[in-house]
Amino acid sequence: MSEFAIGVRESAGVHVLDLKGYLDAHTTPLLEEAFKKLLAEKKYRIIVNCRDLNYISSAGLGVFMAFIEDVRAEEGDIKLSNMTVKVFNIFDLLGFPVLYDIVKDEQEAIAKFGA
């Protein structure tokens, strides 16, 4: 079984998703649900903290693609922080840094939200 968990918390008016473990085709529904819930609650300023994310496949990358447009249409954003080199390399391989705001840490993401 793939091990994956998401924690949700609020920090300075911004919602933070803490991802932990392995994000693959089996575990992506959990992340989809977390995004859907935030959007249903009209929470559009989102940070995804990837500090404990060990692995991501294209299924996981696809989830970010699915929600970014809706979030930005509401003048919010999904910012990704604290990524390990290994996970960043996968994002980079597909050119995702062009589309997503990938920042060093949570503080930088919060500052960019102007929170």
Binding site: S57, S58, A59, L61, G62, M65, A66, I68, E69, I90, L93, L94, L99
Partner: peptide, 10 residues
């Protein structure tokens, strides 16, 4: 913002 189809590229 097209989703999916990234697997083969990877």
């Amino acid at each position: 913002y097209k989703r999916g189809g990234l697997g083969m590229l990877l």
